[in-house]
Amino acid sequence: MTSEKPLIMLIDDDRDFLDLNRRILEAKGYRVVCFSDPNVALAEMASRKPDVVITDLMMKDLDSGFVFSKKIKGDPRFKDIPVIIITAASSKRGFDFTPRTQDELDAMSADAYFDKPIVPEALLAKVEELLEK
């Protein structure tokens, strides 16, 4: 069994991002499942609880990623799963989404936040750090 290998759930509506991040993570030996719809991912979570969730921010709606991460953190079964938000949207009407403090990060129900494009090393380091916690 490979159950020792951590399971990482990727959610993005851009299939190239799924493909890209999958390659980066799989190269490090992680198991990866990909979803383009956060709701499908949420339904899947009960049967296959991931160790880390990496989600895009703007999918169907501007804040799909926030809604999704709130649902995870609000569910007692999943609230301990670290969530990483990745986005190409640095601004919504000119306001920077990038969290500056831990509080702002908490407000997003996220454990980490990255701007696209992803620097592979930074993502991998963050995943490792979150898994160790």
Binding site: D14, L20, R23, I24, E26, A27, A88, S90, I118, P120
Partner: peptide, 24 residues
């Protein structure tokens, strides 16, 4: 901005992975 950054980030990401050899 978002619609342009998305594809650009994909392109940059792919090139990064190829050049850095992270994925072997």
């Amino acid at each position: 901005a978002h619609e342009i950054r998305g594809p650009l980030a994909v392109i940059e990401g792919y090139l990064n992975v190829i050049l850095s050899g992270v994925a072997g």
